[in-house]
Design a protein around this nucleic acid. Sequence first.
DNA 1: AAGCCGGGGCC
DNA 2: GGCCCAGGCTT
Length: 348
Amino acid sequence: MSNTFARRLLRWFDQHGRTDLPWQHPREAYRVWLSEVMLQQTQVATVVAYFERFVGALPTLRDLAAADEDTVLALWSGLGYYRRARFLHRAAQLCVAQHEGELPRELAALIALPGIGRSTAGAILAQAHGLRFPILDGNVKRVLTRYHGIHGDPGQAAVEKQLWLHAEAHTPSARVADYTQAIMDLGATVCVRSSPRCEACPLAADCVARRDDLTAQLPGRKATKKIPTRATVMLVLRDSHRRVLLERRGPQGVWSGLWSLPEATDPDGAWRLAQQHARIDDAQTLPPFTHVFSHYRLNIEPLLFDRATAQHGIADNPQLRWCSADELNALGLPAPVRTLLLQINDTH
DNA sequence: AAGCCGGGGCC
DNA sequence: GGCCCAGGCTT
């Protein structure tokens, strides 16, 4: 094999690669796909428990396709980027309708499914089927920008195009599944963002960043932009049975499709809204807290309306429901809302 | 090309 | 508090 890059990487993988990840046993398409989607912008250590719970509840693609959306979102709750779960669900249903209940084995057909881009499609083909397709995720971008000494933000189209060419050139035709895992493992455990362990790297001998002492500069970072702050009042309407009123969020915006607390822009609006849903006597202001998203920070002021009496007609609205603490577990809730409700249940 | 979409871990 | 992480979709 003239491909010394892949050969060195595979030799390293045989000694130091990760072989105990749950989606490697068995390494089949549905599990690889699920892991890839969960791992989009979420770290391995966080994903493992979610993955095992998810495949425990929905072991096959057909199980996923047949599940209702609340079940899928509940299994996803806490992972974030909930659109990923909705795409996953829809893609599974498309596979049942169009591909005999299996993921297609063609790149274009995979990319045509919602939530699967070129890199995720490549990972599925390479890992599950041993087909020679490159991937280009955050780990591979870091390894390649350093190895080839490529400057600039890897998110820029021109830089990314260059990286795809390198990724393609390095991918071997044998042991593709192991190679794909190997280059991700190298990025995750050796060629890490800060203080990479170059002394342990099989590619160090001809790595440009290593040679020129540029590992701290590469990969280039995009200019940081400051994020705005928004505010909201969250209504905790609780009845005499300690059930809380939840409202399903719409299809647009953050937390789409999740069950959350009714919201108002200010305390006056909160009172008006609360009175539409229930008869109430008093409100208790709870400590405000901040939740940070990637693109803005949200100041949350919780307002507890205890011993509320539901107005008639609420039960007829499918977007509203009174929930006991037990029922919360079966629903997809935003992480800060889940945390808030657990705290209130403990202390009030 | 830029904006949108969560949450957790780490320093 | 800033930054990053097995990205992809929409505008």
